[in-house]
Amino acid sequence: MKNKKYGFYKRITLSFILFSGIFCSNAQNQVIPLWNKIPDEIKAPDYKEKPEIKEGKMQSTSQVSVPTLSIFIPKESKPNQSAVIICPGGGYQHLAFDKEGVKVAEWFNSIGIAAFVLKYRLPTDATMKNKNVGPLQDAQEAIRYVRQNASKWNIDPKKVGILGFSAGGHLAATASTHYDDKVYESAYKVSARPDFSLLIYPVISMENEITHKGSQTNLLGNNPSQELIDSFSNEKKVTAHTPPTFLIHTTDDTVVMPENSINYYLALKKNKVTAELHLYEKGGHGFGLGVNDTSKFWTRDCAEWLKVNGFN
Protein backbone atom coordinates (compact mmCIF):
# COMPACT_ATOMS: atom_id res chain seq x y z
CA MET A 1 0.00 0.00 0.00
CA LYS A 2 3.05 2.32 -0.08
CA ASN A 3 2.66 2.80 -3.81
CA LYS A 4 1.19 6.28 -4.33
CA LYS A 5 -1.21 4.91 -6.94
CA TYR A 6 -3.23 3.34 -4.16
CA GLY A 7 -2.77 5.99 -1.49
CA PHE A 8 -6.32 7.22 -1.63
CA TYR A 9 -7.77 3.87 -0.62
CA LYS A 10 -6.49 4.37 2.94
CA ARG A 11 -8.24 1.75 5.05
CA ILE A 12 -9.45 -0.45 2.21
CA THR A 13 -6.97 -3.12 1.21
CA LEU A 14 -5.88 -3.66 -2.36
CA SER A 15 -7.24 -7.18 -2.33
CA PHE A 16 -10.69 -5.90 -1.33
CA ILE A 17 -10.73 -3.38 -4.16
CA LEU A 18 -9.71 -5.99 -6.72
CA PHE A 19 -12.25 -8.47 -5.40
CA SER A 20 -15.02 -5.90 -5.54
CA GLY A 21 -14.18 -5.16 -9.15
CA ILE A 22 -14.54 -1.43 -8.75
CA PHE A 23 -11.34 -0.15 -10.27
CA CYS A 24 -12.29 2.62 -12.66
CA SER A 25 -10.79 2.61 -16.12
CA ASN A 26 -11.12 6.37 -16.33
CA ALA A 27 -8.11 7.89 -14.54
CA GLN A 28 -10.11 10.83 -13.24
CA ASN A 29 -12.46 8.56 -11.31
CA GLN A 30 -11.64 7.26 -7.85
CA VAL A 31 -13.06 5.13 -5.08
CA ILE A 32 -12.42 6.53 -1.62
CA PRO A 33 -13.40 5.51 1.90
CA LEU A 34 -16.10 7.79 3.30
CA TRP A 35 -14.80 7.82 6.88
CA ASN A 36 -11.48 7.91 8.68
CA LYS A 37 -13.35 6.51 11.67
CA ILE A 38 -16.81 5.03 11.13
CA PRO A 39 -19.22 6.39 13.77
CA ASP A 40 -20.81 3.97 16.25
CA GLU A 41 -18.99 1.06 14.63
CA ILE A 42 -19.00 -2.40 16.16
CA LYS A 43 -16.00 -4.44 15.10
CA ALA A 44 -17.15 -7.74 13.56
CA PRO A 45 -14.22 -9.42 11.76
CA ASP A 46 -16.40 -12.29 10.52
CA TYR A 47 -18.99 -9.95 8.96
CA LYS A 48 -17.66 -9.46 5.44
CA GLU A 49 -19.05 -7.73 2.39
CA LYS A 50 -20.44 -10.02 -0.31
CA PRO A 51 -20.12 -8.48 -3.77
CA GLU A 52 -21.55 -10.17 -6.86
CA ILE A 53 -19.11 -9.88 -9.75
CA LYS A 54 -19.98 -10.35 -13.41
CA GLU A 55 -17.51 -9.77 -16.23
CA GLY A 56 -15.17 -7.97 -13.85
CA LYS A 57 -17.82 -5.51 -12.62
CA MET A 58 -19.59 -5.46 -9.29
CA GLN A 59 -23.29 -5.83 -10.11
CA SER A 60 -24.53 -5.71 -6.52
CA THR A 61 -23.21 -6.11 -3.02
CA SER A 62 -24.53 -6.97 0.43
CA GLN A 63 -23.34 -6.87 4.05
CA VAL A 64 -21.70 -3.49 3.47
CA SER A 65 -19.96 -2.29 6.62
CA VAL A 66 -17.24 -0.02 5.13
CA PRO A 67 -18.89 2.76 3.10
CA THR A 68 -17.18 4.29 0.06
CA LEU A 69 -17.73 7.02 -2.51
CA SER A 70 -17.09 6.26 -6.18
CA ILE A 71 -16.30 9.56 -7.89
CA PHE A 72 -17.36 10.27 -11.49
CA ILE A 73 -16.34 13.64 -12.92
CA PRO A 74 -17.37 14.64 -16.46
CA LYS A 75 -14.48 14.58 -18.95
CA GLU A 76 -15.28 18.17 -19.85
CA SER A 77 -15.62 19.54 -16.35
CA LYS A 78 -17.14 22.99 -16.24
CA PRO A 79 -17.04 25.70 -13.54
CA ASN A 80 -19.92 25.76 -11.04
CA GLN A 81 -21.29 22.42 -12.19
CA SER A 82 -23.87 20.51 -10.19
CA ALA A 83 -23.17 17.28 -8.32
CA VAL A 84 -25.38 14.44 -7.20
CA ILE A 85 -24.84 11.72 -4.59
CA ILE A 86 -26.41 8.47 -5.81
CA CYS A 87 -27.92 5.95 -3.38
CA PRO A 88 -28.60 2.57 -5.06
CA GLY A 89 -31.62 0.57 -3.93
CA GLY A 90 -31.99 -2.96 -2.65
CA GLY A 91 -34.41 -3.00 0.25
CA TYR A 92 -31.69 -2.02 2.76
CA GLN A 93 -30.46 -5.60 2.22
CA HIS A 94 -28.20 -5.23 -0.82
CA LEU A 95 -27.15 -2.46 -3.20
CA ALA A 96 -27.88 -2.61 -6.95
CA PHE A 97 -24.50 -0.97 -7.43
CA ASP A 98 -24.14 -1.16 -11.22
CA LYS A 99 -27.70 -0.66 -12.48
CA GLU A 100 -28.66 2.00 -9.92
CA GLY A 101 -25.19 3.39 -9.28
CA VAL A 102 -22.38 3.28 -11.84
CA LYS A 103 -24.61 3.38 -14.93
CA VAL A 104 -26.55 6.31 -13.48
CA ALA A 105 -23.33 8.19 -12.63
CA GLU A 106 -22.15 7.76 -16.22
CA TRP A 107 -25.46 9.16 -17.46
CA PHE A 108 -25.10 12.22 -15.22
CA ASN A 109 -21.57 12.76 -16.55
CA SER A 110 -23.00 12.68 -20.08
CA ILE A 111 -25.14 15.75 -19.25
CA GLY A 112 -22.28 17.54 -17.49
CA ILE A 113 -23.07 16.71 -13.86
CA ALA A 114 -20.54 15.26 -11.40
CA ALA A 115 -21.73 12.10 -9.65
CA PHE A 116 -20.75 10.25 -6.49
CA VAL A 117 -22.05 6.72 -5.96
CA LEU A 118 -22.50 6.09 -2.25
CA LYS A 119 -21.94 2.54 -1.11
CA TYR A 120 -23.70 3.05 2.20
CA ARG A 121 -23.72 0.71 5.17
CA LEU A 122 -26.62 -1.70 5.24
CA PRO A 123 -28.40 -1.72 8.60
CA THR A 124 -27.48 -4.53 10.97
CA ASP A 125 -26.96 -4.89 14.70
CA ALA A 126 -23.76 -6.80 13.93
CA THR A 127 -21.70 -3.76 12.90
CA MET A 128 -23.48 -0.66 14.22
CA LYS A 129 -24.76 0.48 17.58
CA ASN A 130 -27.92 1.97 16.07
CA LYS A 131 -28.78 0.50 12.69
CA ASN A 132 -31.64 3.00 12.19
CA VAL A 133 -29.22 5.88 11.63
CA GLY A 134 -26.19 4.15 10.09
CA PRO A 135 -27.26 4.80 6.47
CA LEU A 136 -28.28 8.38 7.33
CA GLN A 137 -24.85 9.02 8.87
CA ASP A 138 -23.28 7.92 5.58
CA ALA A 139 -25.62 10.07 3.47
CA GLN A 140 -25.04 13.17 5.58
CA GLU A 141 -21.28 12.70 5.51
CA ALA A 142 -21.27 12.14 1.74
CA ILE A 143 -23.12 15.43 1.18
CA ARG A 144 -20.77 17.25 3.55
CA TYR A 145 -17.69 15.69 1.95
CA VAL A 146 -18.69 16.72 -1.58
CA ARG A 147 -19.67 20.23 -0.47
CA GLN A 148 -16.46 20.66 1.56
CA ASN A 149 -14.32 19.62 -1.41
CA ALA A 150 -16.45 21.20 -4.14
CA SER A 151 -13.70 23.42 -5.56
CA LYS A 152 -11.55 20.36 -6.27
CA TRP A 153 -14.03 19.22 -8.95
CA ASN A 154 -15.39 22.62 -10.12
CA ILE A 155 -18.62 21.94 -8.23
CA ASP A 156 -20.91 24.70 -7.00
CA PRO A 157 -21.38 23.93 -3.26
CA LYS A 158 -24.95 25.27 -3.62
CA LYS A 159 -25.79 22.66 -6.27
CA VAL A 160 -25.14 19.41 -4.39
CA GLY A 161 -28.13 17.08 -4.65
CA ILE A 162 -29.02 13.51 -3.77
CA LEU A 163 -30.69 10.76 -5.77
CA GLY A 164 -32.04 7.43 -4.60
CA PHE A 165 -33.74 4.39 -6.07
CA SER A 166 -36.28 2.36 -4.08
CA ALA A 167 -34.83 1.90 -0.55
CA GLY A 168 -32.03 4.23 -1.66
CA GLY A 169 -34.87 6.65 -2.37
CA HIS A 170 -35.93 6.30 1.24
CA LEU A 171 -32.39 7.15 2.30
CA ALA A 172 -32.33 10.15 -0.06
CA ALA A 173 -35.69 11.34 1.29
CA THR A 174 -34.43 10.81 4.85
CA ALA A 175 -31.35 12.90 4.05
CA SER A 176 -33.70 15.54 2.62
CA THR A 177 -35.91 15.72 5.72
CA HIS A 178 -33.49 14.81 8.54
CA TYR A 179 -30.47 16.86 7.43
CA ASP A 180 -30.43 18.78 10.72
CA ASP A 181 -30.54 15.61 12.85
CA LYS A 182 -27.25 15.38 14.71
CA VAL A 183 -26.58 11.67 14.33
CA TYR A 184 -22.78 11.89 14.58
CA GLU A 185 -19.93 14.38 15.08
CA SER A 186 -18.73 15.61 11.71
CA ALA A 187 -15.32 17.14 11.08
CA TYR A 188 -16.94 19.36 8.45
CA LYS A 189 -18.78 22.56 9.32
CA VAL A 190 -20.81 22.65 6.10
CA SER A 191 -24.50 21.77 5.89
CA ALA A 192 -25.76 18.24 5.20
CA ARG A 193 -28.89 19.57 3.47
CA PRO A 194 -29.12 18.50 -0.17
CA ASP A 195 -29.87 21.35 -2.57
CA PHE A 196 -32.25 19.09 -4.52
CA SER A 197 -33.45 15.51 -4.38
CA LEU A 198 -34.33 13.05 -7.13
CA LEU A 199 -36.46 10.15 -5.91
CA ILE A 200 -36.87 7.24 -8.29
CA TYR A 201 -39.61 4.70 -7.40
CA PRO A 202 -38.76 5.48 -3.77
CA VAL A 203 -39.78 3.93 -0.50
CA ILE A 204 -40.95 6.99 1.43
CA SER A 205 -43.16 5.76 4.25
CA MET A 206 -42.59 3.24 7.01
CA GLU A 207 -46.34 3.05 7.70
CA ASN A 208 -47.51 -0.56 7.46
CA GLU A 209 -50.26 0.20 4.95
CA ILE A 210 -47.96 1.38 2.16
CA THR A 211 -44.34 0.67 3.14
CA HIS A 212 -42.06 -1.85 1.50
CA LYS A 213 -42.04 -4.41 4.29
CA GLY A 214 -38.51 -5.67 3.63
CA SER A 215 -37.08 -2.16 3.83
CA GLN A 216 -39.04 -1.45 7.00
CA THR A 217 -37.86 -4.64 8.71
CA ASN A 218 -34.23 -4.24 7.67
CA LEU A 219 -34.05 -0.61 8.83
CA LEU A 220 -36.33 -0.56 11.88
CA GLY A 221 -36.48 -4.18 13.04
CA ASN A 222 -39.30 -6.69 13.32
CA ASN A 223 -41.57 -4.81 15.71
CA PRO A 224 -40.81 -1.11 15.47
CA SER A 225 -42.59 1.33 17.75
CA GLN A 226 -45.05 3.78 16.24
CA GLU A 227 -42.64 6.54 17.25
CA LEU A 228 -39.88 4.97 15.16
CA ILE A 229 -42.25 4.39 12.24
CA ASP A 230 -43.36 8.03 12.37
CA SER A 231 -39.77 9.26 12.54
CA PHE A 232 -38.77 7.46 9.33
CA SER A 233 -42.02 8.06 7.44
CA ASN A 234 -40.59 10.96 5.49
CA GLU A 235 -43.90 12.24 4.15
CA LYS A 236 -44.54 13.33 7.75
CA LYS A 237 -41.23 15.21 8.01
CA VAL A 238 -41.55 17.57 5.06
CA THR A 239 -41.23 21.29 5.87
CA ALA A 240 -40.93 24.48 3.86
CA HIS A 241 -37.15 23.93 3.94
CA THR A 242 -37.22 20.47 2.34
CA PRO A 243 -35.18 20.59 -0.90
CA PRO A 244 -36.84 20.92 -4.32
CA THR A 245 -37.76 17.41 -5.43
CA PHE A 246 -38.26 15.43 -8.63
CA LEU A 247 -40.16 12.15 -8.20
CA ILE A 248 -41.04 9.30 -10.49
CA HIS A 249 -43.10 6.17 -9.96
CA THR A 250 -45.19 3.80 -12.05
CA THR A 251 -48.83 2.97 -11.54
CA ASP A 252 -48.11 -0.74 -11.97
CA ASP A 253 -45.34 -0.87 -9.34
CA THR A 254 -46.33 -3.83 -7.15
CA VAL A 255 -43.13 -3.79 -5.06
CA VAL A 256 -43.22 -0.22 -3.75
CA MET A 257 -46.68 1.31 -3.94
CA PRO A 258 -46.90 4.58 -5.90
CA GLU A 259 -48.69 6.11 -2.90
CA ASN A 260 -45.20 6.55 -1.43
CA SER A 261 -44.32 9.15 -4.06
CA ILE A 262 -47.83 10.59 -4.20
CA ASN A 263 -47.99 11.27 -0.46
CA TYR A 264 -44.52 12.82 -0.43
CA TYR A 265 -45.45 15.04 -3.37
CA LEU A 266 -48.65 16.17 -1.61
CA ALA A 267 -46.62 17.02 1.51
CA LEU A 268 -44.18 19.04 -0.61
CA LYS A 269 -47.08 20.85 -2.32
CA LYS A 270 -48.71 21.62 1.03
CA ASN A 271 -45.44 23.16 2.24
CA LYS A 272 -44.97 25.10 -1.03
CA VAL A 273 -41.76 23.24 -1.92
CA THR A 274 -40.83 23.11 -5.60
CA ALA A 275 -41.80 19.61 -6.73
CA GLU A 276 -42.57 17.59 -9.83
CA LEU A 277 -44.10 14.11 -9.88
CA HIS A 278 -44.19 11.81 -12.92
CA LEU A 279 -46.52 8.89 -12.44
CA TYR A 280 -45.98 6.68 -15.48
CA GLU A 281 -48.53 4.15 -16.58
CA LYS A 282 -46.20 1.18 -16.93
CA GLY A 283 -42.69 0.14 -16.01
CA GLY A 284 -43.03 -1.85 -12.80
CA HIS A 285 -40.21 -1.54 -10.29
CA GLY A 286 -36.44 -1.54 -10.48
CA PHE A 287 -36.02 -0.32 -14.04
CA GLY A 288 -32.92 1.77 -13.37
CA LEU A 289 -32.34 4.24 -16.19
CA GLY A 290 -35.48 2.93 -17.91
CA VAL A 291 -35.79 -0.06 -20.22
CA ASN A 292 -39.30 -0.12 -21.63
CA ASP A 293 -42.81 1.32 -21.57
CA THR A 294 -43.38 4.95 -20.59
CA SER A 295 -40.88 4.88 -17.72
CA LYS A 296 -37.91 4.78 -20.11
CA PHE A 297 -38.25 8.53 -20.64
CA TRP A 298 -37.69 9.56 -17.02
CA THR A 299 -34.07 10.63 -17.61
CA ARG A 300 -35.23 13.08 -20.28
CA ASP A 301 -37.80 14.53 -17.86
CA CYS A 302 -35.24 14.66 -15.06
CA ALA A 303 -32.64 16.46 -17.20
CA GLU A 304 -35.26 19.04 -18.17
CA TRP A 305 -36.31 19.56 -14.54
CA LEU A 306 -32.69 20.07 -13.47
CA LYS A 307 -32.19 22.62 -16.24
CA VAL A 308 -35.40 24.54 -15.49
CA ASN A 309 -34.52 24.75 -11.79
CA GLY A 310 -30.97 25.95 -12.39
CA PHE A 311 -29.17 22.75 -11.40
CA ASN A 312 -27.63 22.12 -14.82
Results as ranks from 00 to 15, higher is better:
61 T>G: 02
218 N>H: 09
166 S>P: 04
310 G>V: 11
77 S>W: 02
164 G>R: 03
59 Q>M: 10
15 S>F: 06
303 A>Y: 08
275 A>V: 07
130 N>L: 05
53 I>S: 08
105 A>R: 00
252 D>Y: 00
47 Y>W: 11
278 H>G: 12
277 L>C: 10
94 H>P: 00
307 K>I: 14
119 K>E: 08
208 N>T: 10
305 W>N: 09
205 S>I: 01
169 G>Y: 01
253 D>R: 05
226 Q>N: 09
42 I>G: 15
209 E>S: 05
272 K>F: 15
13 T>I: 03
78 K>I: 09
294 T>K: 15
46 D>N: 12
5 K>D: 09
10 K>T: 03
23 F>M: 15
110 S>R: 12
142 A>D: 12
206 M>C: 12
79 P>R: 07
305 W>D: 07
42 I>P: 11
152 K>W: 12
18 L>N: 14
300 R>T: 14
183 V>R: 01
9 Y>E: 00
95 L>C: 03
124 T>A: 13
242 T>Y: 00
153 W>L: 13
121 R>F: 08
78 K>W: 03
70 S>P: 04
282 K>F: 08
286 G>S: 13
26 N>S: 13
143 I>V: 15
186 S>D: 09
200 I>P: 00
57 K>P: 07
110 S>W: 13
228 L>A: 09
1 M>Y: 01
311 F>K: 09
191 S>F: 00
225 S>V: 03
203 V>E: 01
57 K>A: 11
72 F>D: 03
312 N>K: 13
138 D>F: 02
153 W>V: 09
33 P>N: 07
133 V>P: 10
99 K>M: 02
15 S>W: 04
288 G>C: 14
108 F>C: 10
53 I>T: 12
251 T>Q: 11
101 G>P: 03
51 P>S: 05
288 G>A: 14
208 N>G: 06
217 T>S: 09
100 E>F: 03
150 A>W: 06
156 D>Q: 02
129 K>L: 14
73 I>G: 00
2 K>L: 12
157 P>T: 04
304 E>A: 15
190 V>P: 02
178 H>D: 03
137 Q>H: 06
64 V>M: 05
229 I>K: 04
70 S>K: 04
124 T>F: 08
284 G>I: 10
85 I>V: 14
70 S>Q: 05
39 P>G: 11
149 N>W: 06
129 K>G: 12
292 N>R: 15
215 S>C: 05
79 P>I: 01
300 R>H: 13
124 T>P: 09
181 D>T: 04
60 S>T: 06
104 V>C: 01
159 K>H: 05
247 L>N: 06
16 F>S: 11
61 T>E: 02
6 Y>V: 04
121 R>C: 13
275 A>Y: 04
53 I>F: 11
170 H>G: 12
284 G>R: 10
231 S>Y: 02
258 P>Q: 11
150 A>L: 13
99 K>C: 02
